[in-house]
Design a protein around this nucleic acid. Sequence first.
DNA 1: AGAAGGCCCTGCGTGC
DNA 2: TGCACGCAGGGCCTTC
Length: 281
Amino acid sequence: MPELPEVETVMRGLALRLEGRRIRAAALLRGDLRRAIPSGLAARLTGSTVIGFRRRGKYILMRLAGGDSLLIHLGMSGRMAIRLQGPAEMDREKHEHLILETDEGWRIGLIDPRRFGLLDLMPTAAEDAHVLLRDMGPEPLDEAFTVAVLSEALRGRRTPIKAALLDQRIVAGLGNIYVSEALFRAGISPRRLAGSVPGVRAQRLVPAIKATLGEAIAAGGSSLRDYVQPDGELGYFQHAWKVYGRAGMACERCPGPPGCAGVKRIVQAGRSTFFCPRTQL
DNA sequence: AGAAGGCCCTGCGTGC
DNA sequence: TGCACGCAGGGCCTTC
């Protein structure tokens, strides 16, 4: 589930309870997520003070006093559960892999049934050199992500634009949902070869990506109010997709039949893509 | 070099 | 109610 906007929302929710706080206890309940978790991770977290957070693509970096950063990736099914620690709530939830307890008594759990997520520890000074981060493309919401930058990355590519935008080396943080949504917004077919996008289409695509992500983050931010409550679940929030998951339904740009049969679902590289064949060319 | 496909893992909805 | 199947928002590895 978590793409850039969800990861951003989760990070902000974590910051609410962890920034400036001391981790009173940390327990690693399962060490085999996508990658093996460093054995000393729980010990390093215990007693540490959290000084800040950063997001890079779909990764969260939690910075500790003393110069280390905890890398968190939620995979496809990861979420964070935040609640006040109570005497009857010591038990772990199913698929809960890491539990942190703050000096204020908040209990923060990482839950990931499919275990496609990961945790790692690194020096804060070397965050960007981490093997999982070093080849990542620009942050789409940064000013540095421009039409020229995206065009250069796409030029000559003979893969569908859908696949190119999922490639984290081209742009960081987009996943299957927001790629479909951004391409719909830009009026570009997901099947179009990436190399044909530079030009007028890239001029539509870059602002479409920024707006799509920006609106989703705003929706997540408004849902953050709920996380302030003691039983907050970070990771999911209500958001209305325009094409994702809407196969057969009319898109907002079309009048419906007979002019248009509605949103179409196709499979590209084994994954679902949703688009409007009439307005995305 | 770059792209397509298989695979990792568990849960859920659907149809029989 | 049970069971088989397909599908799921990520990313890595192998193959071609």
